[in-house]
Design a protein around this nucleic acid. Structure first.
Lengths: 117, 117
DNA sequence: GTTCAATATCGACGAACGTCGATATCTCCA
DNA sequence: TGGAGATATCGACGTTCGTCGATATTGAAC
């Protein structure tokens, strides 16, 4: 658990600064890169899309292992990465941990990226 | 030069499929992840933002080395990564190579990502 | 042709990453 | 209390990545 990255809330980056006029500071670039890295993996992208396509837009770890074709610890590892970046949230209900996508986080990420367009 | 990634054009991914209903295929996830990885680096994010903030929204390698504080081969390396992903284009004018951001590529990337929101 | 400046490639190094098996933790239920 | 199933953590392995110095390539100008 190296990098807790403020969960969810629009990140510490001044996300709406006129990116086309002033370059990102190294610190802003670090925060943005950390969030992008969390999503820039084929397995984690599939995880997010599977979650969104699941009934109620949520699923437990056990439901994700099969479709991905990976070992259970590997899936837990990826879910942890996504959770650290605030992209998914997991809550334990009995034996199962139900994960769902934080659409706010995705929206915030898109908002940070769109000035680059 | 391992992965030429079709330059620019909206990638081979069916980018507008209802991502919330059908999960990404492993192949779609690979293409999307490769593009995101190109951008998911603090140095490359700063490169893109510096280019956009430059006069005429373009700059040569020599103008980028100083602001980044990295060695020239390192900057060339990152520019190559961005170019392979179609995020920037470079054209040689005499001794200088002028790089500029492909706003189409950024737009395409955002379009692929927005269904996750 | 030779020289010089801008850029790209190469080779090496340490750090970070994705994956897995083994194991620990947690929760329910008998 | 104890057992079983779901999940998380740990330790190790090979791979990829970011960085740099050294070197090669390119193009302009003399």
């Amino acid at each position: 658990m190296a990098k807790p990255l403020p969960v969810l809330e629009p990140p510490a980056v001044d996300c709406c600064a006129p990116l086309t006029e002033a370059p990102l500071t190294p610190e802003q670039a670090d925060v943005l890169a950390r969030r992008l890295k969390a999503l820039a993996d084929p397995v984690r992208l599939r995880l997010v899309s599977i979650l969104l396509a699941s009934p109620g837009q949520e699923a437990c770890t056990c439901d994700l292992v099969g479709p991905l074709g990976l070992a259970q610890p590997t899936v837990s590892h990826h879910l942890k990465k996504l959770a650290e970046a605030g992209i998914v949230t997991g809550d334990r209900r009995g034996v199962w941990t139900h994960y769902r996508v934080s659409t706010e986080a995705i929206t915030a990420l898109l908002a940070m990226l769109s000035p680059l367009r």
